[in-house]
Structures are given as structure tokens and as C-alpha cells.
């Protein structure tokens, strides 16, 4: 498989900075000065299918914005992002559940939000429940779940979506120690499967271990790109000097 998974061309993203929430009344009746910031500036990048790539960078360097654009959650201000295949982002795992609905009803709801079809969810239902270890609670409304249980369920649904491209933000710590181990294994399984993976982490060692290639983002621009060992040693020199 020598296909392009993600192609970003001259990608830029601008945010309007607001100190207070804007109002329609304000927009219509007064001219407010708008502060704009560029969260990403002119990013061009090609990621091949099956590649594992890590992203490092300080807070506010544009890592999360980049993942949001690749996941299709938001769109770039300028430039283009072409993404081939189903994307799953392991972010907001505990979100998208309805407290009044049961675990099973929520699996359908959440799974479809992630782009799975009803039939696909039905086929994977047992697997999702078993992985989340929620067999006893599956007919109970979600408000009875602990946060850890919601995270586990969210994680199980996300990985059941069997994405071509997996986006992972920060070190994942889902549930208790046993489940953390299990989720790490599930992610490592994805790494072995030839999926395209983008891993954002504050821990450069994780990236160095799992990703052959890495990107260093700084102020919305690519400061360095290449073999992860080199990129990370450059990054560590400046940030931990």
C-alpha cells in the first residue's frame, strides 16, 4: 500500500480571539476590533498510508488544531486538507453520551456519530461491550456510570470503528490500571496493523518508541520534520535547555 493517507497543502487556520462572547447586537450596532491569531500557518505535509508519525510541540503550538482539521471537526481558513479513509480521533472519549439512555442505546448513538453504520454497530456490539467490561451495566442508563466507565465505553466504541487513520491526543489513561494496560495494548495492536497513526504527546520518549517520523510544531509552523530521534533531540535541546 503506497497510497497517500493525508495530504495538507499550504494549510492555515485563523481564530478570532474574543475576550468576551460576541453578540449579534454588537455586530449590528458597533464596530468591534477583532483580534485574530493564526493557530496554523502554511503547513504542507504528506502522510502515506500506514505511516506512524508523532507530533511534538509546546502548549498552543497548534497540535490540537491540526488534529481537529484532519479529523474534519473544523475546516482550514486557507489551504487544503485531503484525508483518505475513515478517521477516528481518540479525543473527548467520555463525550457524546446521553445520560437518560442505556449503555446499549448509547453505543448506537455514539457509534453513528463516529461514522459507523447501524448494521456495523450491531455486528460489533458484543465486542464493544466485552472490551469495555460493561456486560452487567449495559441496560442501565448512563447517568449511573462512573467517569471511568464512560471513558472505557468511549474508547471501546472508538476502536471498534476500525479506522484507517487514528488520531491520538496526549497520553491515554483510560480507566483503572488494568484497563490502561488493555487500552495501550489495543493501540499497540493498531500500530502493528499498518494503520496510519498520528500521535500527539508531551512525552517525546513515547513518540520515539512508537513513531519512526516526527514533526515539531512551534507557533503554528513546522519547525522540524524528519526521523523522530533527530526531531526530538532538537526539540528537547530548545525546550529543556
Amino acid at each position: 500500500m503506497n497510497n497517500i493517507a493525508i495530504q495538507l497543502t499550504n494549510l492555515s487556520k485563523q481564530y478570532s480571539l474574543h475576550h468576551e462572547k460576541p453578540t449579534l447586537a454588537e455586530k449590528l450596532f458597533s464596530r468591534t476590533r477583532k483580534e485574530k491569531i493564526w493557530a496554523l500557518k502554511d503547513i504542507s505535509l504528506t502522510i502515506m498510508a500506514g505511516e506512524k508519525i508523532g507530533i511534538v510541540g509546546s502548549n498552543g503550538s497548534g497540535k490540537t488544531t491540526l488534529l481537529s482539521i484532519i479529523a474534519g471537526i473544523t475546516e482550514p481558513t486557507r489551504g487544503q486538507a485531503i484525508v483518505n479513509g475513515r478517521v477516528a480521533a481518540l479525543i473527548g472519549l467520555e463525550a457524546g453520551f446521553h445520560p437518560e439512555l442505556t449503555g446499549e442505546e448509547n453505543i448506537y448513538l455514539n457509534g453513528m456519530l463516529l461514522g459507523m453504520s447501524r448494521r456495523e454497530i450491531k455486528a460489533k456490539l458484543k465486542q464493544i461491550i466485552a472490551f469495555a467490561e460493561l456486560e452487567k451495566f449495559i441496560d442501565v442508563p448512563l447517568h449511573a456510570y462512573s467517569n471511568g466507565m464512560k471513558m472505557r465505553l468511549g474508547f471501546s466504541i472508538a476502536i471498534a470503528a476500525d479506522p484507517d487513520i487514528l488520531l491520538i491526543d496526549e497520553a491515554l489513561s483510560v480507566g483503572d490500571q488494568a484497563f490502561q494496560k488493555k487500552s495501550r495494548q489495543a493501540i499497540e495492536h493498531f500500530f502493528r496493523q499498518g494503520k496510519t497513526i498520528i500521535l500527539v504527546s508531551h512525552y517525546p520518549t513515547t513518540i520515539q518508541k512508537l513513531c519512526p517520523r516526527a514533526i515539531w510544531l512551534e507557533n503554528g509552523q513546522i519547525k522540524a520534520i524528519g526521523k523522530s530521534r533527530q526531531v526530538i533531540s532538537q526539540y528537547q535541546k530548545t525546550s529543556h535547555a
Binding site: 481537529s68 479529523a71 474534519g72 479525543i91 473527548g92 463525550a95 456519530l113 463516529l114 461514522g115
Partner: peptide
């Protein structure tokens, strides 16, 4: 809002 920031749909 958490839904909007979680996935593309």
C-alpha cells in the same frame, strides 16, 4: 458542544 468537538458528523 462536546459532541461538536469530538467528531465529524
Amino acid at each position: 458542544r462536546t459532541l461538536i468537538k469530538k467528531a465529524r458528523f
